[in-house]
């Protein structure tokens, strides 16, 4: 994702930034006529999870570090990239099933599961930093 990204923002690692970024991305998806459920559930929850992972885990809640958010929205799909300064993680190894009886009452462990449940594709790779890419097909 490069020059034609609709949104390309670098924010400090601060969870208070999340709602503002989510609002901007949802606004762009609304302009491209994503459906109501995608605007109120899939995009805000999955992006909130990706941003909080980047801020709290990737950057260790260190306000001196930054998160870069890129969003490319079209009539076909939304592609989001959330990049932190951490070392990355193994997506499969870190995604547990929070719905099993032994995990149901755990306070944590639902973030990646929700991202994968609400997006069509979730990928992780290395760029300059650790990047999580979320793709949602417009329906």
């Amino acid at each position: 994702m490069a020059s034609n990204a609709a949104l390309d923002i670098r924010i400090p690692s601060d969870v208070q930034q999340i709602e503002g970024i989510v609002a901007q991305v949802v606004h762009r998806c609304r302009e491209h006529r994503f459906n109501g459920r995608q605007l109120t559930l899939n995009v805000p929850v999955a992006l909130t999870e990706a941003l909080s992972n980047a801020i709290l885990r990737g950057n260790g809640d260190d306000m001196a570090k930054h998160v870069r958010v890129r969003a490319e929205v079209s009539e076909i799909r939304l592609v989001l990239e959330v990049e932190d300064e951490g070392n990355g993680f193994d997506l499969d190894a870190c995604t547990s099933d929070p719905t099993t009886p032994e995990n149901l009452e755990r306070e944590t462990g639902r973030g990646l599961f929700l991202m994968r449940s609400l997006m069509d594709q979730v990928e992780r790779f290395r760029g300059d930093g650790n990047i999580v890419r979320l793709t949602l097909i417009r329906r």
Binding site: L41, P44, E105
Partner: peptide, 17 residues
């Protein structure tokens, strides 16, 4: 409330316990 994220759900689980 429009939506809750995983950390919000986690807090509810913790409070219920």
């Amino acid at each position: 409330t429009a939506y809750i994220d995983s950390s919000g759900l986690g807090v509810l689980v913790s409070l219920a316990k």
